[in-house]
Computed example of a mutant assay.
Amino acid sequence: MTDKPFSPVTIGISSCLLGGNVRYDGGHKRDRFITGELSKYMRFIPVCPEMGSGMPTPRPPIRLVGDPDNPRAVCVDNPDVDVTRQLRTYSTKALANLDGISGYILKKDSPSCGMKRVKVYPEQGGSAQRQGSGIFAHTLMSHLPNLPVEDEGRLNDPVLRENFINRVFVYHHWQQLTDEGLTPARLIDFHARHKYLVMAHSQAAYKRMGRLLSNVTKNALRRISQDYFSELMSALQRPVNRKGHTNVLQHIMGYLKRNIDTHDKQELGESIERYRQGEIPLVVPITLFRHYFRLHPDPYISRQVYLQPHPQKLGLRNQL
């Protein structure tokens, strides 16, 4: 099993995370992982909603006030200055320039770009509640509900980081499929290639997706494919635990049982169990599987996304 090539994937990103001096204080929030290792595999489209909507830098800071589900953005020092409309207008226009992206990384806690748990202050003063989303982030996620979105703070968690990048590449695979021309046969093939990746997240979701495709026809293709993709991205958003990975690894081991000897089976089985117990990271049994399948190729497993869903050099499974 040879390493798969990965062409760069395009994602949107808050400009300050790339080092752009666009923040209210004239500074930036450059992220080393994003601008370093991740930049080798991602093309970034930087967006700063505040500057894009006409605000200067440096500028008076803004914050969210009112209803956490529908907050307003106002200046901290002068609440009479309401910039909600200009941010919303820009956000809607900006989406037109983001056509074709496969994911988005937002700036945490930002009143424009915060994904979740952004502070929202009461209109009449008092303590803030961490129940809001930034104006731009809310527009983005409402218009593109299946798009993989994360903030840079959550990407410090190894599980959430790997989950997000998994979703970005699956989203990109789907875009390639639709660009090539969706057919019932291609949709079923896509489902088969992503079997074990989805099963690790949710066996129930994989079964529901299979039922959706059980009677797919050309006439129903558009409706079914939309339902299928929503189910897929929803399932992948759920982080995988050790139990989910262990179950999939044991399934895949079945494809080797006739090709490897007792000693190798024992080594592989012990590796899976040690991973389940939390003694070794996921990359160890995965590396063993890739070794054995290089020696004993299996046409079905060779097409499975699960064994290499993203570039190995990112090292995302080294910490799982």
Rank of each mutant, 00 (worst) to 15 (best):
T262R: 13
E267Y: 11
R258H: 12
I272F: 02
S302C: 13
L288G: 00
P311K: 05
L307T: 05
I280Y: 09
I272C: 00
I252F: 01
Q277F: 11
L288I: 05
G254Y: 06
R303P: 05
Q304S: 03
T246V: 12
I286R: 00
Q250P: 08
L268I: 05
Y292S: 02
Y292P: 07
E273W: 07
R276C: 12
P299M: 09
H296T: 09
Q308E: 12
G244E: 07
R303M: 13
E270R: 06
M253I: 10
I272T: 03
P281G: 01
L307M: 03
H251V: 14
L288D: 02
V248K: 06
I301W: 07
L268E: 00
T246E: 09
N259E: 15
S302T: 13
P309Q: 11
L256F: 00
E273K: 05
R258M: 08
G278Y: 08
M253D: 10
H310A: 12
E267I: 12
Q250G: 07
Y292E: 07
R294T: 15
P285T: 07
Q304H: 08
I272R: 07
Q266I: 13
I252R: 02
G269H: 06
L256M: 06
E270L: 03
N247Y: 14
Y255R: 12
R274D: 07
F289C: 04
G254L: 02
F289Q: 02
I260M: 05
H263Y: 15
S271I: 01
L249H: 02
R258D: 11
Y275T: 02
Q250M: 12
E273P: 04
E279K: 10
H310M: 13
G254D: 00
K265L: 13
I260E: 01
E273D: 11
E273A: 00
L295P: 06
Y300T: 00
D261A: 07
L249Q: 09
H296G: 10
Q250K: 12
L307F: 00
R294V: 14
I301L: 01
R274H: 08
K313V: 14
L288E: 04
K313Y: 13
Q277V: 11
V305M: 03
P311M: 07
